[in-house]
């Protein structure tokens, strides 16, 4: 089952990064130990803060 999930994630990692993303959660989660309890919380907070980095660079390009 774990291998099946892994095989679904890998092709996505070879695609261009999506808008709003600097470091994809799928990449970050590989660095972490097994997350107990609320995995969704950890993912959401990572992505929300990662998106601020995206805002920074694209606003530098477009607005400043």
């Amino acid at each position: 089952m774990a291998e099946q999930k892994q095989s679904k994630r890998d092709p996505a990692l070879r695609e261009p990064k999506k808008p709003g993303v600097c470091i994809p959660w799928e990449e970050k989660v590989k660095e972490l130990k097994e997350i107990s309890a609320d995995k969704e919380l950890v993912r959401k907070v990572w992505e929300d803060i990662d998106a601020l980095g995206y805002v920074y660079i694209w606003q530098c390009l477009l607005s400043f």
């Binding site: 261009p16 990064k17 660079i57 530098c60 390009l61």
Partner: peptide, 16 residues
């Protein structure tokens, strides 16, 4: 083309 966000951070920002 391959990674617009990465290019901006890694190449463009240090130059500007």
């Amino acid at each position: 083309i391959n990674d617009p966000t990465g290019f901006l951070f890694n190449v463009w920002l240090p130059r500007i």
